[in-house]
């Protein structure tokens, strides 16, 4: 399927293009949302989060660029899934997920979040492979360490070590850029 053509049709208001995108990406998005929401929340809630991502796509259909549609949808469904957890007062699933950060200057929350996200991506890009993939699988896709270990044919301890190194790199990156940064887990 040519994503460029699909996005063009979507921008033109073609409902059939939206349905084709739903057919293409529902399974992927359901898995991402399920990693966050299951087993605490039922299948219906997970499908609801997935459908919200496609609704947002329709309402913001000029935003995604060809080649990045799946990543755009995945970012949306992650946020929907986390919103659902918070609404149900259920703790987020990942351990070792917190950083203690202090910005070097006062910034508006949205600008600060954008900068932190950008710095995080740069830091992860320096990890090399498979460390970068492991970090993204865990912190973006919410895959558990044992699941990652099985997929990459490693043992769980190795995966956990690489995740710890990734967090260290992240902390170094923030520190080098003027942030006061601590990891509550060190």
């Amino acid at each position: 399927m040519n994503e460029q053509r699909l996005l063009r049709r979507l921008r033109e208001g073609d409902h059939a293009a939206l349905s084709e995108i739903i057919a293409l990406y529902t399974s992927y998005l359901y898995t991402v949302a399920s990693n966050i929401m299951a087993p605490q929340l039922p299948r219906e809630d997970i499908e609801e989060a997935v459908s919200d991502a496609f609704v947002r796509l329709w309402e913001h259909r000029a935003e995604p660029v060809p080649g990045k549609l799946r990543a755009w949808l995945a970012a949306v469904v992650r946020n929907r899934a986390k919103d659902a957890l918070r609404a149900a007062r259920i703790a987020e699933p990942l351990e070792d997920d917190l950083l203690e950060l202090a910005a070097p200057v006062d910034m508006e929350e949205e600008a600060l979040r954008a900068e932190l996200t950008h710095i995080a991506r740069e830091a992860i890009d320096t990890l090399g492979e498979p460390d970068g993939e492991i970090f993204r699988r865990h912190y973006f896709l919410y895959q558990k360490t044992e699941e990652i270990a099985a997929v990459l044919n490693m043992n769980g301890a190795t995966v956990r070590t690489k995740l710890r190194r990734g967090r260290e790199r992240l902390r170094e990156y923030f520190t080098e850029r003027g942030y006061s940064c601590a990891d509550p887990h060190f």
Binding site: D97, L99, A120, R121, E133, R136, Y139, F140, L141, R167
Partner: peptide, 15 residues
């Protein structure tokens, strides 16, 4: 402030 690493990953979808 405390921030979640996972909340900073929006640009880091694995391909």
């Amino acid at each position: 402030m405390q921030i979640r690493i996972s909340d900073l990953m929006d640009e880091s979808c694995p391909e």
